[in-house]
């Protein structure tokens, strides 16, 4: 769902670039409060982790495969601001080095996957946690929603740009990603569960928030 150059019209990508730049600047400030000077090496390594984790394919349906996007995982493990910074760094590398997403579309891709897929997903996760009281269920639903939300937004942006008609692009993007999102949801919940049992101190230090409600 990395939108290439040329698929969005100027008003769409310029607006989204401005929105993403503001959101990332805010996230950078908040994240430096969360992690202090440690943030630089740690965030770099964790961005590299997200990048590496995205390379691992899992089977979806009949020979097709998907891979982790990691937005929800980054948000829940690292917090909304640090998580969004890590995802943004990954998206910049993918656009610059791998032509996975265009350079003028970078703002849109950051908006879909780092702002909506990570920051917004974090607050969704917290709301779901309060609502259901079960962190596993909350993480599952938030991870699924983050993928579908990011894909849906990409569809909306393509439709607004007149690149692809609404009645076609929205069902196509949302439909495929509703399925891929199930894999994302199961994996995200499994990762969180394993981290909780292997390094409970990372949970206690606030990386998986609302530990009291979890216990």
């Amino acid at each position: 769902m990395h939108i290439p150059d040329g698929f969005l019209d100027a008003k769409t990508w310029v607006t989204l670039s401005a929105a993403s730049a503001a959101a990332v600047a805010y996230a950078a400030r908040q994240s430096s409060k969360e992690l202090e000077e440690r943030q630089v090496p740690l965030l770099g390594v964790l961005s590299a982790f997200i990048f590496a984790a995205q390379m691992l394919n899992f089977p979806v349906v009949a020979g097709t495969s998907g891979h982790l996007l990691g937005g929800a995982l980054a948000a829940i493990l690292l917090g909304p601001w640090t998580g969004a910074m890590a995802i943004t760094a990954v998206l910049i590398i993918q656009a610059l080095i791998f032509q996975d997403g265009g350079i003028t579309a970078l703002g849109a891709n950051v908006f879909n996957m780092a702002v909506a897929g990570t920051m917004v997903t974090f607050f969704l996760y917290r709301a779901l946690l309060r609502l259901t009281g079960k962190w596993y269920l909350a993480a599952f639903l938030a991870a699924w929603a983050s993928v579908v939300l990011a894909a849906g937004l990409a569809g909306v942006e393509l439709a607004i740009s007149g690149t692809s008609p609404w009645h076609l692009v929205i069902p196509a993007m949302v439909g495929i990603h509703a399925l891929i999102g199930l894999g994302e949801a199961v994996i995200t919940a499994a990762v969180l569960s394993a981290v909780r049992s292997l390094r409970p101190d990372l949970v206690a230090s606030g990386l998986v928030p609302a530990q009291k409600e979890v216990a």
């Binding site: 919940a189 499994a190 981290v195």
Partner: peptide, 27 residues
């Protein structure tokens, strides 16, 4: 599929912990 996805989750969790610990050592 579900079993495969869950076991891959375990792999990614170990990758996360190794990365996190590496980040701490580097710092």
């Amino acid at each position: 599929r579900r079993v495969l996805w869950q076991s891959l989750g375990g792999v990614i969790a170990s990758l996360f912990l190794r990365s996190y610990e590496r980040g701490e050592r580097v710092y």
